[in-house]
């Protein structure tokens, strides 16, 4: 075998492994999307391919709710003169079935919005993730600036502590945090969803690493021009750090948009504060078990904003990552 066929073989292996890896990652996603399009029957019987047949289906709940009783049969008697009660019942039933039949895709997605106040949840998600990110930036930028560009006693120690905090998992401190918030009477408020995340050590670390690469001369030039330290942070460092900030924004927003753990703990009962992942709970444990379609439709709706945002920011995001040397 010559060099190039060795090379070729190596490449094949690499690609095979990568393809398997990407299938593992994409498969759940594929299923989510596919289920959100199919009818309950198709999901149960696992048929219909990706799109399902999209044949008209009968909304069982709608049909059950309108189940004709004796009064309905009586009032319908005029329309169906000369028919027996059971025949009238059958006719009414047929009418109801046509009224209650929909395409599965429409069924799933309208249910997603009608079964739970999904729009409200999405809005909550936006409020929470945006406030978390904004406060994180307001805290992290000055910290990162001080840790990278100001000389003061104990700087290395403080930075060491920042690194140390990176090692603490949130679940470990969830309980004390919850107790603190409960004592302050903040549970079941937006504050409870936002406050614990406002100081992001990861954000401080990431921005500090980025600021280390900003030449000192730039800061000295700003000082000569008469900018104060605070305005250097916001008027000089912030604009130069946009790519890094964008990278951080994606980390932060994705993490908190998708967070199920913390909202589940501090939001108890008050559905007005539910974030999108909590909204998914509305579909769980239905006895008939045939609500996978709407549930997956909800999940699809929840992840769509993230995917759109990522696609829009993709180029800058990757730029930001390489700039901070995270690769």
């Amino acid at each position: 075998m010559n060099m190039s066929s060795y090379h070729y073989l190596g490449e094949t292996w690499k690609h095979a492994i990568l393809i398997v890896g990407s299938i593992v990652v994409i498969l759940p996603f594929y299923i989510m999307l596919s289920y959100s399009l199919k009818s309950p029957g198709e999901i149960e019987r696992n048929e219909g391919g990706f799109f399902g047949s999209q044949e008209m289906m009968i909304d069982e709940r709608c049909a059950k709710l309108r189940e004709p009783d004796q009064a309905a049969i009586d009032s319908a008697r005029q329309r169906f003169t000369g028919l027996s009660d059971s025949e009238i019942y059958k006719a009414l039933k047929a009418e109801i079935d046509t009224e209650c039949s929909v395409r599965p895709i429409i069924f799933n997605y309208t249910k997603a919005f009608s079964e739970a106040p999904l729009l409200r949840y999405l809005m909550n998600g936006v409020i929470v993730t945006v406030s978390i990110f904004v406060v994180q930036v307001i805290v992290a930028l000055p910290c990162a600036y001080a840790l990278s560009k100001l000389r003061f006693r104990g700087r290395e120690f403080v930075f060491g502590m920042v690194l140390f905090c990176l090692l603490i998992p949130v679940h470990a401190i969830a309980l004390p945090l919850y107790i603190m918030l409960a004592k302050l009477g903040l549970t079941n408020t937006y504050a409870a969803l936002v406050i614990p995340w406002t100081i992001s050590v990861f954000g401080i670390f990431l921005m500090r690493q980025f600021f280390m690469t900003v030449p000192d001369d730039l800061i000295d030039a700003a000082r000569m021009d008469g900018l104060g330290e605070f305005s250097i942070v916001w008027n000089v460092m912030l604009p130069t750090a946009i790519p890094a900030l964008l990278a951080f924004a994606i980390f932060s927003v994705v993490a908190h948009w998708n967070d199920y753990f913390w909202p589940r703990i501090v939001v108890t009962g008050n559905r007005d504060l539910f974030t999108p992942p909590l909204g998914l709970r509305e579909f769980k444990g239905d006895a008939d078990g045939s609500f996978f379609g709407p549930m997956m439709a909800t999940a699809t709706i929840i992840v769509t904003p993230l995917i759109v945002a990522f696609l829009l920011a993709q180029r800058k995001f990757i730029e930001g990552i390489t700039l901070t040397g995270m690769k």
Partner: peptide, 13 residues
Amino acid sequence: LAMVFQSYALYPH
């Protein structure tokens, strides 16, 4: 006083 730096230190944005 005004200073000119080796790296120019212009505001990039």
